[in-house]
Amino acid sequence: MRAILSVRISSPLPADELVRRMNARAADFAAVPGLVQKSFGLDPLSGDICGIYIFETRAALEAYRASPLATSIPAAYAATEIRREIFDLVNLVQAQSAGAPRAEPS
């Protein structure tokens, strides 16, 4: 079963610097074994950033969490607070470019 990792980070860094750092690390995340997708987000009100990861399996997620890339996140973003949550992926809905949403079983 696929798994989701949600990470929310508070940091004193300005938004433009956080986005620059996210973009600079994107290729590193693209090379993570078992990672299907990672989305970066920025909360314009709090300044917090987030990462939403979808992994092929829970084992791939756990392997990532123990990796140097994952453990470097607090320092990379000067994190003052990190909140992590893990979920089993139950359903994934992706919009088609022209038409109704498409459901993809997990």
Results as ranks from 00 to 15, higher is better:
A79K: 06
S72L: 07
A30P: 02
R58G: 03
L35E: 01
D48P: 01
I49H: 01
R2W: 13
D48C: 02
I82K: 10
E104Q: 09
P105C: 03
F87Q: 14
Q96D: 14
S46D: 07
A60D: 13
S39A: 08
G99H: 06
Q37W: 11
P33G: 03
S10I: 00
A79Q: 10
Q37M: 14
N23M: 13
A59P: 01
R84V: 15
K38T: 05
Y64A: 10
V7P: 02
D43T: 02
Y53H: 12
G99W: 00
N23R: 15
A30Q: 05
R84Y: 06
R21D: 07
S72I: 06
A79V: 12
E56H: 11
E81S: 15
N91F: 11
A60M: 06
G51K: 04
A3F: 05
L92T: 14
L35M: 12
P44T: 01
K38Y: 02
R58W: 07
L92H: 08
G34I: 02
S67E: 00
V32S: 02
I9N: 07
P44M: 03
A95D: 10
L45D: 11
Q96P: 00
P74I: 10
A26I: 03
R21W: 09
R25Y: 01
S72R: 08
A75D: 05
A15R: 05
F29A: 05
A98C: 01
L69T: 09
G51H: 12
Q37C: 03
G51Q: 14
S106K: 04
L45S: 10
V19R: 10
R84S: 12
A70W: 06
A24E: 15
P101G: 09
I86G: 00
S46V: 00
Y77V: 14
I4C: 04
S97V: 06
R102E: 03
I54C: 11
T57V: 02
L89V: 08
A95K: 09
Y53F: 09
F87S: 08
A15L: 07
Y77P: 02
P101A: 15
A63D: 13
A63T: 15
R20T: 00
